[in-house]
Amino acid sequence: MLLLLAALGALVFAYGAAGLVGGAFALNRGWTPPSEGVRIYVEDNGIHTSIVVPVAAEGVDWRDLVRPEDLRDPRFAAHSHLSIGWGDRGFYVGTPTWAELKPGTVLRAAVGSDDTVLHIGHLGEPAVQAGVRAILLRPAEYQRLADFIRSSFAIGADGRAGSVPGYGRSDAFYAARGRYTALRTCNSWTGEALRHAGVRMGAWTPFSATVMEWLK
Rank of each mutant, 00 (worst) to 15 (best):
V53C: 11
D44K: 01
Y174Q: 00
S80T: 15
G198H: 05
L27G: 08
R200S: 14
A172V: 11
A197Y: 04
G85K: 12
W31D: 09
R89G: 06
R160K: 10
G94L: 00
G168L: 02
G30P: 02
I155L: 06
A24H: 14
A56C: 09
A17L: 15
G159V: 03
A172K: 05
P103A: 07
Q143P: 07
R138H: 11
R138D: 09
M1P: 10
S83C: 15
G23R: 02
D114C: 07
L118G: 07
A140N: 14
R179F: 01
H196P: 02
S113C: 10
R169Y: 05
A193L: 11
Y142R: 04
A161E: 00
A197D: 11
A78K: 15
A172Y: 08
E36K: 07
S50A: 15
W204G: 04
V111A: 13
A127Y: 14
R63C: 10
A182T: 09
G16I: 14
R133Y: 03
R75L: 13
P33M: 04
I40A: 03
G131I: 01
N28P: 09
D61H: 08
G85T: 14
G23K: 05
T116C: 03
R29W: 07
L145Y: 03
I120K: 07
Y174P: 00
Q129S: 14
L71H: 08
R39G: 00
F148P: 04
T205H: 04
A175M: 03
G159T: 06
D158R: 06
W31F: 05
T205F: 04
E213R: 13
F153G: 01
A17Y: 14
A127K: 15
V12L: 12
T205K: 03
G30F: 00
P68C: 13
G30K: 01
R179G: 05
A109K: 09
S151L: 03
D88M: 01
S151T: 01
W189A: 03
R160V: 00
R67A: 12
A26S: 13
G178C: 01
L65V: 01
P139S: 09
G168Y: 03
A24E: 13
M212F: 05
F25E: 07
T32C: 00
